[in-house]
């Protein structure tokens, strides 16, 4: 395997968790709910995936556990913000605080243990084609899920009736309710989908990216995923582009550190976050695209009158 392939592969591995978490949050936000707890759900997925994979010896069961924990965590958020109409910003933050705390508690005995890695796809002949082989036929299974998610979510949001309904709820929950659409049920499902994605993204971190458990191992990726949704102005294909851009930035800084470039390593570590800020500023310049795509009800609670 050549150098180019290796770099492209690591970029894909770094981009995958960002992509999955962001695509989940995109669906949540399209329904008009702002869940700032992505980091919390993601880290719960990471710890759940790692612990269960270690205990059962099967990384696939770990992946399922990661998804399940993400959904469970998101249900806490859903209950507060949808059933109790609590402030979404504050509840999302509490979910992150709770997730970071609970995950370090759950994972404490597993710190430093070698994990179970989810193996890469290895097809005869196909995976051996130079360049394309490893990139298209030789990656980890979650990579393929992430691509399928982008296509699936695109199709769902813009080609199905349920997707149209979901977007209409995000744009005006009062009209949707007046039309007899069960607003709260749609939102519950959207939040749970977001939780499943965040959990899976966390599972990717602890089962593929670095198969071990480290406290706070998400290291701000949940927040970058949130920024990606804004960056993508709520379009799935642009989330894909954004995630790979950020994957490239974070891999670039790792390579720069390895090469011993005469820049403090801390500056390089801070680079993805600085890049996020710059990108957010640039994208907010484009007022029209933002206005067209931003779900108008984003962050506003809805209580049906009876």
């Amino acid at each position: 395997m050549g150098m180019t392939e290796a770099i492209l592969l690591t970029i894909a591995t770094a981009a995958t968790p960002l992509l999955i978490a962001a695509i989940g949050e995109l669906v949540v936000e399209r329904s008009g709910v702002l869940n700032l707890g992505v980091e919390g759900m993601m880290v719960m997925g990471a710890v759940g995936g790692f612990v269960v994979a270690s205990l059962t010896g099967n990384p696939w069961i770990g992946v399922l556990a990661a998804i399940a924990l993400g959904v469970l965590t998101s249900l806490l958020f859903a209950f507060l913000t949808i059933s109790l109409a609590a402030n979404q910003v504050a509840t999302g933050l509490s979910l992150t605080i709770l997730g970071l705390g609970a995950s370090s508690l759950m994972g404490e005995k597993f710190v430093g243990q070698a994990g179970k890695k989810l193996g890469n796809l290895d097809l005869p002949v196909l995976s051996d084609i130079p360049l394309i082989g490893p990139l298209i036929f030789g990656q980890d299974p979650i990579f393929y899920i992430s691509i399928a998610l982008v296509i699936g979510v695109s199709w769902f949001l813009f080609r199905t009736r349920a997707g149209l309904t979901l977007r209409s709820i995000g744009n005006n929950h009062h009209s949707a309710h007046a039309l007899g659409i069960p607003v709260l049920r749609y939102r519950y499902l959207a939040v749970m989908f977001g939780g499943a994605c965040a959990g899976l993204a966390g599972g990717h971190l602890s089962l593929v990216y670095t198969p071990q458990w480290v406290e706070n191992m998400t290291a701000g990726r949940g927040w970058i995923a949130l920024a990606l949704v804004v960056f993508a102005s709520w379009r799935p294909a642009r989330v894909l582009a954004g995630a790979y851009l950020f994957g490239a930035v974070s891999i670039g800084q790792l390579h720069a550190q390895a090469l011993g470039i005469a820049v403090p390593s801390q500056l390089l570590t801070a680079l993805p976050f600085l890049a996020t800020i710059v990108v957010l500023v640039l994208i907010s310049q484009n007022v029209r695209a933002t206005l067209i795509n931003t779900p108008a009800m984003l962050g506003r609670p809805f209580v049906p009158d009876r």
Binding site: L76, N87, T91, S94, I97, L98, L100, G101
Partner: peptide, 13 residues
């Protein structure tokens, strides 16, 4: 930290 998260959570509820 779990306690801190729980406090915020229940107060919001």
């Amino acid at each position: 930290r779990v306690f801190q998260g729980l406090i915020l959570f229940f107060v919001l509820a």
